[in-house]
Design a protein around this nucleic acid. Structure first.
Length: 896
DNA sequence: ACTCTCACG
DNA sequence: ACGTACGTGAGAGTT
């Protein structure tokens, strides 16, 4: 008996739950779900393991879903059963089980033993009959019964007490058959499936039923007459037809077929309900089995706290040189490849090693000039020579510094890992490998050190082995991670979007954007004077000098010395943020001075001085777009961040004047999506009111204002109403709360609540969608974008209310923000392609979430004005049109 | 290394 | 009764 701890009290579960698994059919499904990976899943003894791997995943899935107290897995005992005695040809056409699967069955039994799960087979009976009999016993004992099978025949067992889960596709997707589901789908009760099969027969089990009767006719007859017996009781009353003739002729076969189709519920089984008690796995036995099967990722799940269990093997490495390049590159198999640098910034970091190879032989050199070798460059540029890497963009940009172009990358371990799970993807290969159960790589920090002590290891043998181990990890994890992508239905996202995008981004980073230092320096000089002046006036007002940049010191001055009203506290003291200072405006003239000082100091330090320090010798800034960081699928930009250059206030916006084209006579060209997130919401929610607004090209915020303020004419919408409606639209996208909205637009919570209620009344499908997406997140544990980008939300069922509510808001926001990210990524790939095909000089430079920025010769501007919007608005087909606005000018500032 | 603040979509 | 908008990066001060 297992006990569940609830609110500190021991309670006995009220209902026992019995899980019955059709071992053979699930094994078949498992085998074919991962058939494409058959040759990648072979253990060190040459045993195929794909079916064991998938079976284990399916089993975990159903165990997690049903949390059973009792489990039984039933297998077929042999070829002959009581059914073959009744009908010689029963299953007569069934192909023999593939050898690659048959060899895995004994290990499935071992797996179940290690799981502590009873498995059972019975001579002369099929697994179906064992399950039918146990299901009946379990239901009679008051248990909730779940049956898992890959075979729809089992669904005849469905009842109030028995749910039948049938595998649909892939490894984890199931369809639940309940009596209600049956009625809805087929218009009959579960038991009547037997009658349907009696009439239509079963091709795979090879019994014929009645001549010329297929599924449609059989269903119609059963719906009309109820059963085979009742049908034949009234067959004489049927009007003369070929059907009637066939029914009469094949009566014996119909009854025999019914008998064959009927799953026995009183087979002479020797297993008892008590034998099926399930108490969880035997970790020791499982560990041994996983080791035998080379299931590294599952091993890691078993003992996550165990450190350094893997033996660091000595790998076969040859020092790569111009002399043995031929040998290294002769191998036409896919090869792992890497260019190693110590730091993050691959635009500038020195290359400390280059490596490539396969598990049979690794080649590593610490001499970066190998990248200039013509033979290596030819291999790198050959699309047909497949490369496996960790961070395609990093390697591509680094190679480019040596005049090399990399083509033919088809596995990027970092990118794939990020798509599988956005959480915790670091730049450290060892850490990522470990996440996926591969223990053989040290973290870079261990080998190279951290901070100021980071350096190339003095022990060069150790260094070379580290590179080889990294290459080996990339190579070894490739089949597993690609299979995981397939299971997630993420291959198109990977091959059509993220992988080509990595190269598009690399080219943008390499192109860089020209920034005029003189413009920034002039701004800096003027800012310096104004800051000096403000500083002096603030000191005068405060009565003494202090560090205005220190929130702590500022708090003391404002709230202790000057006795202004503290509005909000932070963990460490008084809050001095803008929202607080704005509320204090009337209490002292020092507030306005501080607000101005803050604003100018930010511009000075982050943008003037910050950007000046980032200009390369070529006069350009080369940011890095991080493709594997955000939890929604957006990009981020680092060193420097070019996605947060000031825009909203003119003081800061002046910074944009320093961003100029690379050549005289060129222009900056900019296109941005208009309200792309709300259009995505209109698409995914199916809300007709919102869709209509976009189809009619209305001002969406004014449209919302009319709806929530109950106005009849657009002329009645005031600026303030529109502003509040706009905030409400944003609030919906963020996963709204009345408090959040009230804070944002400075109204009462009551008022904010009224807005939200009115909003949902006017856009009813939006409300439905928000509820449905949260429900989906609870059931699946993740949400998805239109392109199957996935975000897991482990807190969606958290006890902690704040964590749970946050996960709920995220569940609403991520599909919207993430789908918008999907869309612009597709547009970027298409844009890069069309610029190349048309041989335009225009160059894509920057992406700012819903906006693309180019530089181009003036004569190409008229082309771009048509081309860019047409590519962007056709990136995907939504239920509403996408709208794109464009403009251009001499500098980024003039683009408005 | 963490906190606070503020820049962007 | 409780604390709350979603997603980022960088600079400065403090620990």
């Amino acid at each position: 008996m297992r006990y569940f701890l609830a609110k500190g009290v021991l309670t006995v579960p009220t209902t026992k739950k019995l899980l019955l698994v059709d071992g053979n059919s699930v094994a078949f499904r498992a085998f074919f779900a991962m058939h494409s990976a058959l040759e990648s899943f072979i253990n060190h003894d040459g045993l195929h393991t794909n079916a064991i791997y998938a079976f284990k995943t399916m089993l975990d899935n159903i165990l997690k879903q049903t949390e059973p107290t009792n489990v039984l897995v039933a297998f077929d005992a042999g070829k002959t059963t009581f059914r073959t005695k009744k009908f010689d040809d029963y299953k007569g056409t069934r192909a023999k089980m593939p050898g690659e699967l048959a060899e895995q069955l004994p290990f499935l039994h071992k797996l179940l033993d290690a799981y502590g799960i009873k498995w059972y087979e019975l001579k002369d009976y099929e697994a179906d009959d064992i399950i039918g009999t146990m299901a009946k016993e379990g239901a009679a004992a008051g248990m909730d019964v779940t049956v898992l099978s890959g075979d729809r025949d089992l669904t005849q067992l469905a009842s109030d007490r028995v749910t039948v889960q049938v595998t649909v596709k892939g490894v984890t997707q199931l369809e639940a058959y309940t009596p209600a589901h049956f009625q809805e789908k087929l218009g009959i009760a579960p038991k009547q499936l037997i009658d349907v099969k009696a009439l239509m027969g079963d091709n795979s089990d090879n019994y014929p039923g009645v001549t010329k009767v297929g599924e449609k006719t059989a269903l119609k007859l059963v719906q009309e007459y109820g059963s085979v017996e009742d049908l034949y009781a009234h067959v004489d009353e049927m009007k003369k037809s070929k059907l009637k003739e066939n029914l009469i002729n094949d009566k014996d076969m119909a009854f025999l077929s019914k008998d064959l189709a009927t799953i026995r519920t009183s087979a002479p089984i020797t297993v008892k309900l008590a034998d099926t008690d399930y108490a969880g796995p035997d970790v020791e036995a499982l560990t041994a089995l996983y080791q035998e099967l080379d299931f590294n990722s599952f091993l890691k799940d078993l003992a996550p706290q165990e450190e350094e269990v893997a033996v660091k093997k000595e790998l076969p490495v040859i020092s790569l040189s111009a002399e043995n390049l031929d040998l290294a590159l002769k191998n036409t198999d896919p090869q792992a490849f890497m260019i190693e640098m110590l730091g993050d910034n691959y635009h500038t970091e020195p290359v400390i090693a280059v490596g490539l190879g396969t598990p049979a032989q690794w080649y590593v050199t610490t001499d970066h000039t190998i990248l200039q070798n013509p033979a290596l460059q030819a291999w790198l540029a050959d699309n047909q020579r497949i490369k496996y890497v960790f961070d395609a963009k990093r390697n591509y940009v680094a190679a480019h510094r040596f005049g090399a172009t990399i083509k033919g990358i088809d596995f990027d371990m970092l990118l794939v890992s990020y798509l599988l799970n956005t959480v915790d993807n670091s730049n450290d290969l060892g850490a990522v490998a470990k996440m996926h159960g591969y223990q053989g790589v040290e973290p870079d920090a261990t080998v190279y050190g951290t901070g100021a002590k980071r350096q190339v290891p003095t022990d060069s043998a150790l260094f070379i082995q580290h590179i080889a181990h990294k290459l080996a990890a990339i190579y070894q994890l490739q089949p597993q991670l690609i299979q995981d992508l397939k299971d997630h239905e993420q291959m198109p996202l990977y091959t059509d979007i993220e992988l080509p995008l990595a190269i598009v981004l690399a080219d943008m980073e390499i192109a860089g954007v020209k920034v005029e230092p003189d413009t920034l320096k002039k701004m800096g000089a003027s800012l310096k004077e104004r800051l000096q002046d403000l500083e002096n006036r603030i000191y005068t007002e405060a009565g003494h000098e202090f560090n205005i940049n220190s929130p702590k010191q500022l708090g003391v001055v404002l709230f202790d010395e000057m006795k202004l009203t503290p509005i909000k506290k932070t963990k460490t003291g008084y809050s001095t943020s803008v929202s607080v200072l704005e509320k204090l405006q009337d209490e002292s003239p020092i507030i306005q001075m501080i607000l101005s000082y803050r604003q100018l100091a930010k511009i000075q330090s982050t943008y003037v001085e910050g950007l000046l320090g980032q200009i390369h010798p070529d006069g350009k800034i080369h940011t890095r777009y991080v493709q594997t960081l955000t939890q929604t699928g957006r990009l981020s930009s680092q060193d420097p961040n070019l996605q947060n250059i000031p825009m909203h206030q003119d003081e800061g916006k002046q910074i944009r004047k320093a961003f100029v084209p690379s050549y005289p006579g060129w222009q900056i060209f900019d296109s941005d999506y208009s309200q792309v997130e709300l259009r995505v919401l209109a698409h995914v929610s199916g809300d007709e009111n919102m869709r209509e607004a976009f189809r009619e090209n209305r001002d969406i915020h004014a449209n919302t204002a009319m709806k929530i303020f109950h106005l009849s004419d657009p002329s009645q919408v005031t600026d303030n109403m529109r502003r509040q409606a706009k905030a409400t639209n944003f609030g919906i996208v963020y996963g709204i709360s009345d408090y959040g909205l009230s804070q944002n637009i400075g109204i009462s919570r009551i008022q904010a609540k009224a807005f939200i209620d009115a909003y949902f009344e006017q856009y009813p499908k939006v409300k439905e969608w928000t509820e449905q997406i949260v429900q989906t997140a609870r059931e699946k544990g993740y949400v998805e974008t239109i392109m199957h980008r996935r975000r897991y939300l482990p807190d969606i069922n958290a006890k902690n209310r704040n964590l749970r509510l946050f996960a709920e808001r995220t569940a609403m926001n991520t599909p919207i923000q993430g789908s918008a990210a999907d869309i612009i990524k597709v547009a970027m790939i298409n844009m890069a392609k069309v610029l190349r095909e048309r041989k335009l000089q225009a160059t894509m430079l920057l992406q700012v979430h819903d906006e693309l920025i180019f530089e181009a010769p003036a004569e190409e501007i008229p082309i771009l004005e048509k081309l860019v919007p047409s590519i962007m608005d056709s990136a995907v087909k939504l239920a509403v049109p996408l709208k794109v606005d464009s403009s251009y000018g001499n500098t980024w500032y003039d683009v408005k």
